[in-house]
Measured scan of single mutants.
Amino acid sequence: RDEDEKEKIKEALKRGNEDKAKEIAKRANVSPEEYERLRKEAE
Rank of each mutant, 00 (worst) to 15 (best):
K14I: 10
N29H: 09
I24C: 04
V30F: 08
E34A: 05
K10D: 01
A42T: 07
R27S: 11
K6V: 10
E18A: 09
Y35D: 01
K10N: 02
E33Q: 09
K14V: 07
K22M: 12
V30G: 00
A12H: 11
K8P: 02
E43C: 07
E7S: 12
E11W: 06
R1M: 13
E11C: 05
A21S: 02
N29F: 04
E34F: 02
I24R: 02
K10C: 05
R27I: 11
L13V: 04
S31R: 05
L13W: 03
E11P: 00
K14P: 00
G16H: 05
E11A: 10
V30Y: 07
E18V: 14
L13P: 00
G16C: 05
R1V: 14
A12D: 02
E34K: 01
N17K: 07
D19V: 12
N17I: 03
N17D: 15
K8F: 06
E43L: 15
R1L: 13
E7M: 14
K26I: 12
I9P: 00
K40G: 09
R27K: 14
E43Y: 14
G16W: 03
I9D: 00
E18I: 14
A42P: 01
R27D: 09
A12K: 02
E11R: 08
R1G: 14
K20A: 14
D2R: 08
K14C: 04
A25T: 02
K8D: 06
A25W: 00
E7Y: 12
S31K: 07
E7L: 13
S31L: 07
A42I: 11
K20R: 12
K40V: 12
K8N: 09
K40Y: 12
E33P: 04
S31V: 05
E7P: 04
R1C: 09
D19M: 12
A28S: 08
A42L: 08
G16R: 04
P32N: 10
E5W: 15
G16V: 02
K10Q: 03
E36G: 03
E11Y: 05
E23F: 05
E41A: 06
K6M: 14
K8Q: 14
R27G: 09
E5L: 15
E7A: 13
I24Y: 06
K26F: 10
E18H: 12
E11G: 06
K20Q: 14
A21W: 01
R37E: 10
E36D: 10
R15M: 15
N29W: 03
D4P: 08
A42G: 03
K10V: 08
R27T: 10
K10T: 04
K10Y: 05
E43F: 15
K6D: 04
E34S: 03
E3T: 11
K22V: 07
K6T: 09
N17R: 09
K40D: 09
I24W: 04
E34V: 06
I24T: 03
A12G: 01
I24N: 02
Y35S: 01
D4R: 12
E18R: 07
E33H: 07
D4V: 11
E11N: 10
E3H: 12
E18W: 11
V30T: 04
D4W: 13
K14S: 06
E3G: 10
E5G: 06
L38P: 00
R37A: 11
E43I: 14
E34P: 00
E43M: 15
A21N: 01
K40L: 15
K6E: 06
N17A: 09
E41N: 04
A28F: 14
P32G: 08
E33N: 06
A12N: 05
K6Y: 15
D2C: 07
K26D: 13
N17W: 14
K8H: 08
K14Q: 07
K20W: 13
K20H: 11
L38Y: 05
A21P: 00
E43S: 09
E3C: 05
D2S: 09
K40Q: 15
A25N: 01
R15V: 13
P32K: 11
D4T: 12
R27H: 12
V30A: 02
K26A: 11
A21C: 01
E7H: 12
A28E: 07
A12W: 14
D2M: 08
I24P: 02
N17C: 07
K20M: 15
G16L: 03
A12I: 03
Y35Q: 02
I9C: 02
R1E: 13
L13S: 00
A28C: 07
R37L: 10
A25Q: 05
D19S: 13
N17L: 14
V30Q: 02
A25K: 02
A28K: 04
D2N: 13
I9S: 01
E43A: 13
K14E: 04
E11L: 09
E7W: 15
G16E: 03
E41C: 04
D4C: 11
I9N: 01
L13M: 08
I24Q: 03
R39L: 08
D4I: 12
E23T: 05
A21I: 01
K40R: 14
S31D: 08
E7K: 13
G16S: 03
D19E: 15
D2W: 14
K20P: 01
E23M: 08
D4L: 13
E33F: 06
R1W: 13
A25F: 02
R1D: 14
E3R: 10
A25E: 02
K10R: 09
R15S: 15
R27P: 02
Y35M: 08
E5I: 15
K22A: 10
R39H: 05
E33Y: 06
P32L: 12
E18K: 07
P32F: 11
A12R: 00
I24A: 04
L13Y: 03
E23Y: 05
R15N: 15
K22R: 14
D2I: 13
A12L: 12
K22S: 06
R37Y: 08
K10E: 02
S31Q: 06
N29M: 05
V30S: 01
R15A: 15
E3L: 08
E41R: 04
K8Y: 06
K20Y: 14
S31F: 03
E43D: 09
A42W: 06
Y35E: 01
R37F: 08
E5H: 15
E18T: 11
